[in-house]
Design a protein around this nucleic acid. Structure first.
Length: 334
DNA sequence: AATAAGGAGATAA
DNA sequence: TTATCTCCTTATT
């Protein structure tokens, strides 16, 4: 029983999850602009952008995957009559080929097929949105070196996740209130219990954990081999690809950050992607992320840059021809 | 004060 | 042994 909700009947699951998710998102909405003690830059997950673009859709997509019930389609249709609009408002991704694209070849449809077609495109939207969420979670997992399923977290993993979520959403630090808790403990806690531990952001943390739990539950569900959710499974394996295997190298890590300007563009970005020239805009931030990834709390830019300089003789990274502060160049741009 | 370049020993996988 | 991590000195911006 990795997810308490999973053991409920389908009907109950549907009702309870709708309620849960709406609460969660309302909470996230409420807390979006809360004060933050972190200076981690403007790192905002795309989940938030999606929320902003299509709030009704976001929650519905999750729920649709969580049930076989198709009534959500009606809900979504009512909530956002013009589905094409949120689509066009989607922020462009750096890897567009990974996003299921709604094809526009449904012009000459017979009226009777309209509902079917709508369902099909909604399914595509849904898998795309879910894919975004899964990718965000996957990114966090790689960065923190934790598993996607909160139930498997030990106390250290829990702390990492808290730290991460706090800095991502600019929440006040509340890690101490959850110090001895494992992921299993965390998952068993109600929103009220979260609030008791952390009055300021307990509800927000609970909401985010809920999303992670849902994602993990979905992943488990997909891995059973459901044809209807095969698309999501592909997204998972795609996202999983780079997190399996050997410990990550610094240059790989830097590439990962550079590949996600949406999330990290404010701390590291390409000056010339073709030539592999990049600039570290916030050295402290990048060092902190690297330390997080490698479990080195004492990491700083002095040490990180020393590691980068080790790449000089290895021919992996060099200083660009016109040397500038905090600017480096991959010797073999891809 | 921050960053750059390397030397050199320590450490973890 | 490799790939950092850590600490340090000296020079540059």
């Amino acid at each position: 029983m990795s997810n308490p909700v999973g053991s409920l009947s389908e009907g109950t699951v549907y009702a309870s999850r709708i309620g849960m998710t709406e609460d969660s998102l309302a909470t996230l909405e409420r807390n979006r602009s809360s004060g933050e003690p972190w200076d981690m830059g403007e790192t905002k997950p795309s989940v938030e952008a999606l929320e902003r673009g299509m709030p009704g859709l976001y929650l519905s997509c999750f729920d649709m995957l969580l049930t076989e019930d198709a009534t959500w389609l009606v809900k979504v249709s009512e909530a956002s009559p013009a589905l094409a609009v949120p689509m066009s408002r989607m922020e462009p991704r750096e890897e567009p080929e990974q996003c299921p694209v709604i094809d526009s070849q449904e012009q000459g449809l017979s009226p009777g097929l309209e509902g079917q077609e709508e369902e099909r495109s909604l399914e595509q939207v849904q898998s795309m949105v879910v894919g975004e969420v899964l990718k965000d979670i996957e990114t966090a997992c790689k960065l923190l070196n934790i598993t996607p399923d909160p139930i498997e977290w030990n106390t250290g993993n829990v702390q990492k996740w808290l730290l991460w979520t706090e800095h991502l959403y600019r929440l006040p630090h509340a890690g101490k209130a959850f110090q001895e808790l494992t992921g299993k403990d965390l998952c068993a806690m109600s929103e009220e219990e979260f609030r008791q531990r952390s009055p300021q952001c307990g509800d927000t943390l609970h909401a985010h954990l809920d999303i992670w739990k849902s994602a993990a539950w979905m992943k488990e569900r997909c891995s059973v081999g459901d044809t209807k959710t095969a698309g999501s499974e592909e997204l998972w394996s795609e996202a999983d690809s780079s997190c399996s295997g050997q410990p990550i190298h610094l240059w790989q890590f830097l590439r990962e950050l550079l590949l996600k300007p949406h999330s990290y563009g404010r701390c590291i970005r390409w000056l010339n992607k073709e030539k592999g020239i990049f600039k570290i805009e916030d050295s402290a931030h990048v060092a902190r992320l690297w330390g997080l990834r490698k479990n080195r709390p004492a990491m700083n830019y002095d040490k990180l840059s020393r590691s980068i300089r080790q790449y000089y003789k290895k021919g992996i990274i060099r200083k660009p021809d016109v040397s500038q502060r905090l600017v480096y160049q991959f010797v073999h741009p891809v």
